[in-house]
Amino acid sequence: MLTKDEKKTELKVLNQVLAVCEDGKSFYQHAAREVDSASLRRVFLEQAQARREAIQELTEEVQHREGSPVDNGTVSGTLQQWYTDIRASLSDSQDYQFIVALEEAETRSLNELKQAVRSLHNPRLASKLGSHLATIQLAHDRMKSIKDDMKRTHH
């Protein structure tokens, strides 16, 4: 049985992960609207959909614990989008700038989520969040692979 403090920690962690997923969803949707490449647009929309699915599942977890789920991302996520827009507008390769920024964002997301999972005392919830970590790790690896391919062919 979890203590009251452990339950509060779970809700805090779930909402932290929700906010990170909201950041990812928002950034991928934004990038999909901004890039020139149709293939990148598809990749970004796929990633945004994966985040929507995670958000739905995590929202249900928060509600199951009688908490109030967050429905927006973080300030740092918003600032990252603005910064990327500026970098992209000044670049010869806007698509590349979005890939670089998304890989960086995924790295930060992974670090935040790993810390969050470590703070949990509930193995079932830690396992569930671990599956979202795996999804974000795959997204990170995909962005890195695309970035490396673009760097070899364009830079």
Rank of each mutant, 00 (worst) to 15 (best):
T78S: 04
Y83I: 05
H30W: 07
Q49W: 01
D92W: 07
L58A: 09
Q137G: 09
L11D: 03
T84W: 09
R41N: 10
G130C: 07
R42E: 15
I136D: 02
S93A: 08
D148E: 15
A126H: 08
Q94C: 04
Q16R: 15
T153C: 01
A88I: 07
L18M: 08
L129R: 02
R87P: 01
H155W: 13
H140D: 10
E60M: 02
R118D: 15
K128Y: 01
R33T: 12
Y96Q: 11
T3L: 06
S91N: 02
K151T: 15
S145W: 01
V62T: 06
Q97R: 15
Q137L: 08
A101D: 12
Q80A: 13
E34P: 00
R41E: 15
V75S: 03
D95F: 05
M1S: 13
Q81T: 13
S68D: 13
N15D: 09
T84K: 05
V70P: 00
Q47K: 14
T84I: 06
H140L: 10
Q81N: 04
L2R: 14
L138Y: 03
K114D: 08
P69A: 08
H64E: 13
L129A: 07
A38Q: 12
A126C: 04
S37I: 04
M150Q: 11
R41Q: 15
A32V: 03
K7L: 15
Q49T: 04
D71T: 15
Q137W: 02
D5Q: 14
S127D: 14
D36Q: 14
A134H: 12
I86R: 07
A19E: 14
R65G: 01
Y28T: 02
V62R: 01
L18P: 05
V13F: 04
A48L: 05
V35S: 10
H140R: 15
S127L: 03
F44C: 06
F27V: 04
Q81I: 12
E61N: 02
V117K: 13
E104H: 08
R65Q: 06
R52P: 00
Q29C: 03
A32H: 06
D92L: 13
E53L: 09
R41H: 12
S119R: 12
S119D: 12
R42V: 13
S131E: 13
D95C: 08
G73T: 09
K128L: 10
R142E: 14
G24I: 03
L14C: 09
Q29T: 08
I99L: 14
D148Y: 07
M143D: 04
T59I: 01
T59N: 05
